[in-house]
């Protein structure tokens, strides 16, 4: 059984061969069968218990967010990207306030005058507007709403490069050609 090891350089979990196979091969086309973990185990030559235990560890470490569905934007519920230009001294407080909404599922500080960027997802536009207006009212800072008009990316999962030098600069994904 593999152990969790922390890489002191970049604070990430040391990845075993099992991890690499799990993360490379099962970001999509996850088995739709009664026993998906047993089927994965059979394909990569380990036991069902090992697959489940390792996924639990990866999830606990935050490497795996979840096993599940990525939903096409706006096919169920709706979402919007929002940006705020927050004075540096207030950023942590405003970020915590924004985090407090269950409708906010991403929230990042970015290097720009517009320094707080978050995504609000809700059942409908009224709920989104209510959240954005509430944030604006409570902070006194204008919220820039940047709704998505068109998506060009086909989600095939994230191609992981395991070594820092494994960099395919300019590579075009074969799945898209």
């Amino acid at each position: 059984m593999t152990h969790r090891n922390h890489d002191p350089i970049n604070e990430t979990l040391a990845m075993s061969e099992l991890d690499k196979q799990l993360l490379n091969e099962f970001q999509r086309d996850f088995p739709l069968t009664s026993t998906p973990y047993a089927d994965i185990a059979a394909r990569i030559g380990v036991t069902e218990q090992e697959v489940i235990a390792r996924l639990r560890q990866l999830r606990a470490a935050g490497v795996v967010g979840r096993v599940g569905a990525v939903i096409r934007p706006h096919s169920i519920g709706t979402s919007v990207l929002a940006a705020m230009a927050v004075p540096a001294a207030r950023l942590e407080q405003v970020a915590a306030l924004v985090n407090g909404y269950p409708e906010v599922n991403h929230n990042y500080e970015r290097e720009h005058r517009y320094n707080l960027w978050f995504v609000v997802t809700a059942a409908d536009q009224d709920d989104i507007d209510a959240v954005l207006n509430d944030i604006q009212r409570r902070t006194g800072i204008r919220v820039l709403a940047l709704p998505m008009l068109e998506s060009y990316h086909i989600d095939v999962g994230f191609k992981l490069h395991w070594e820092p030098d494994d960099r395919d600069i300019g590579e075009i994904n074969a799945n898209h050609q």
Binding site: L23, D29, F30, L32, V67, I71
Partner: peptide, 13 residues
Amino acid sequence: IKRFGIIVRHREL
């Protein structure tokens, strides 16, 4: 469903 499977978190990787 655009994709069904393991959802990774980039920073932790």
